[in-house]
Design a protein around this nucleic acid. Sequence first.
DNA 1: TATTGTTATACTCTATAACTATA
DNA 2: TATAGTTATAGAGTATAACAATA
Lengths: 118, 118
Amino acid sequence: MMSELVQRLAPLGLRFADSSAMMLIAANPGITASALGRMLDIQRANMVPLLNRLEVAGLIERKPLNGKSHSLALTEAGQAKLDQGERVIAEFETWLIDRVPEEHRPHFKPALDALWRD
Amino acid sequence: MMSELVQRLAPLGLRFADSSAMMLIAANPGITASALGRMLDIQRANMVPLLNRLEVAGLIERKPLNGKSHSLALTEAGQAKLDQGERVIAEFETWLIDRVPEEHRPHFKPALDALWRD
DNA sequence: TATTGTTATACTCTATAACTATA
DNA sequence: TATAGTTATAGAGTATAACAATA
């Protein structure tokens, strides 16, 4: 399932972690790299190449916050790319849930949500 | 979820792919490495280190079949290890499904099965 | 001619340790 | 003293290309 999603995102030049990060930056403008890493369960050290990639691609901006932290925000191009990515993800979710037999379908998302809640 | 299972298997010295391979070898004694790789969706080339590891650990035996292929089988130690692994996996599945609210629970396995069927 | 087992290689993802600078 | 950002590094997982030997 994940490899299917990865393949669908690839034409946009996005990896899975890229779109996850961009979604959270959009929802939390000004967030720092470390805080974002904690949300994504990605080590601080591994955020560096990820954010470098997004910055070089012109999708995010890093602004010094206080000499120690940096504030992250989507650029206009980043917001446009995220919109595209979210469309792909929505299509993927539809594709996924359509494979679940109708009688089980209403239970599927709630069940998955419960797995990582708490 | 996968990392939880990986952590539970680690004390047995098993990786996830190891237990998957051993389950399929047990169910298909005499299977070849290539056929096993196709079942597991693992490239032929990547089966080599996996099977070497299991062989060095004394869990499987490779016997020449016809000069080209080899026949795979669990050793006694391999069967014992697999039994342990399957207990761990069963406990993991119980742990997993217990997190799903009761009303969704009967729908969960059938929904997951449907995702990769066909 | 297609397949098996194998080697070599490269890329991604992830985890850890260590460093500097700042809060 | 704890945290942020960073570098370097190592372990896994995975993909591809190539080769010799065999079916």
